[in-house]
Design a protein around this nucleic acid. Structure first.
Lengths: 193, 193, 193, 193
DNA sequence: TATGAATGAGAATTCATTCAT
DNA sequence: GATGAATGAATTCTCATTCAT
């Protein structure tokens, strides 16, 4: 039966993803070899090449998946609530992301240095959830005189700032822990919007 | 005579730095082998290990040197001018850095993903010029009610934001080129301070 | 077919063993590089690491194999004959080993400095032939009042003494050649048992 | 003044010996590099080559010194006592050596695999104390009908046996600890002489 | 004598990729 | 599709030895 073969393929692909993610986050990207991945995934070496071009191929796909997952979750949760002000909505969204990363430092570490605006843009096309983020932001500014471009640039800066602060304070504890950074980060974001 | 040997050592070390920097920026870090570095530097392989532990040792030292050089240049140039407002002074400083990176994209690429606040803090101890940046910032806030910690956190966020925007817009042209980003970045920084 | 691949693997492994043994005995262990072994074996460098951890891994396995081979041969030959006295049987066994080493000095040289009682004990578990040696010895003492432990210690001393004498007289000709040492060695062993 | 220079030379040579001995016994011979030795000795790399040809040169000299030291101490102590029987005298001598090695396992480990009869013979020429051992043994046999050669061979076997048993039981605890081996070793030696 | 920077050959080891089964 | 043995180029790192000072 075809579906059984297809299912088997999906299982193999999935186990490669899982194994690679685990190794990338714990050992690091440079220190992870394809032979490590296949060993952990329990498949043969050649099988890896049936699904991915090389280590960076699977890495990129993981980054994209995980990034979109986080952002998607954040927007989904945000939409479950109702807010009086756009400001509150945005900060709820940002806060959700921060709390997510607080709980999963390893993912933050993996994603951050690789989550470029480029990948985000790519996701924009493929992942419906991402549209929502833009939507949220643009609705928030709909009464302002700002151009669409400037709105996007502002969103971009807020996300980059949030990412930088998360990475620095959660991973490196610099300049201090995330809980100490949050108030001033939120104050800053409020000033920006 | 001692000075001759010492001078020779300095030359070798310098040529290793130069060669490594050139290769890291043009070929990339992963793609640069130590044998490439020594070949380019014109020294023997063993000589590399007299000066550096491994590839990442020389990389870290390069990052630190270059980062401090840029920041030092920026603060030095800023101090040559006189400004009416702290805001103008800070933006001049930021602008100097941006223009620097515009001219030297390769350095930006190398530095950014590695210029963590940690390295910046380390530089704070060893490199006098960095003190000046704090000084500039703290003088600018001396009449405010902000605590020293909050001032530092704000400086930190401005630098991280600037770095992120530079990297994204100069290297990736995302969300747009740096010249289009500058106005809104400056406006944002003004809001923050 | 599985057997073909398996057979091929065995061939490669065997050729590595043979090449390593030849090089260890002729050039010496320290002077033999893994690249020498694979070149002689006619396999790729990476193949070595498919079968062995490093040079000392293959060395240990060679020592064990060869040691057990010699002892196994000796006990096998001894059992082909019938003896009136245990003394004669033991001396035949010892003599077989000595004659073997006389003909294969290189093996003696390789084995001796590494054939510890530990390896012998390890062999005891895996190699059936070794049981026979104990059996022979314990049968020889079955009427005595000696404890099993003391019998084993005695066997141990005889083997160590024989090994020492072989090495010294065959390899170094010290204090004299093996043929001059044999009578007094045998006389000594007779006194011991 | 010449004597001062001479003294300085002796100090350097001595520190090289001490450093090399410490490293050989703790790290092992193969794992000790000349650069380790000179670093530990606190002299320059070139200085090593003023005193020794290579690593094995200093190793051989260390082995010879240490071996002769042990044997010399043993014979010196033995001569301080008086014995009724030669047997007692010999066993006292052997026991002294065993106790020495019990206290200094590292030295035993270093010496044993390298203390060949050849080095012992070499010592015979240069080190007066060693004559005493022969003397002791030959006096013990002076009433027997044994030839001088056979006496020497017997001494040789006793020393080899003792060395083997020491190494195996003290270092490897095989077949058991030295204190359990001593009674049967002594009994065996008594049978031999 | 003594130094120690420099050398560079060469050893060990890894690993992406292929391909016959 | 799946396997995993084999490859061998590439890379890191060591270390004995030299020699100008």
């Amino acid at each position: 039966m075809i579906s059984k073969i297809e299912k088997n393929k999906k299982i193999k692909e999935k186990s490669l993803y899982t194994a690679a993610y685990d190794l990338f986050t714990t050992k690091g990207i440079n220190e992870t070899a394809i032979s490590d991945i296949v060993k952990k995934a329990g498949v043969a070496k050649g099988t890896f090449y049936l699904y991915f071009k090389d280590k960076y191929d699977i890495l990129d796909k993981i980054i994209l998946n995980k990034s979109c997952h986080v952002l998607g979750e954040a927007i989904r949760q945000t939409k479950l609530n109702s807010f009086n002000k756009f400001e509150d909505e945005l900060l709820y969204f940002i806060d959700y992301i921060i709390e997510y990363f607080k709980k999963d430092k390893l993912m933050l570490k993996l994603i951050y240095k690789n989550l470029s605006w480029g990948i985000f843009k790519k996701a924009y096309k493929d992942y419906e959830e991402i549209h929502e983020i833009y939507g949220l932001f643009e609705r928030g500014y709909e009464d302002s005189s700002l151009s669409k471009e400037d709105i996007d640039k502002t969103l971009f800066m807020i996300i980059e700032l949030t990412g930088s602060v998360c990475y620095s304070s959660i991973i490196l504890n610099e300049p201090t822990g995330i809980d100490d950074m949050k108030p001033i980060l939120f104050k800053t974001i409020k000033k920006i919007i």
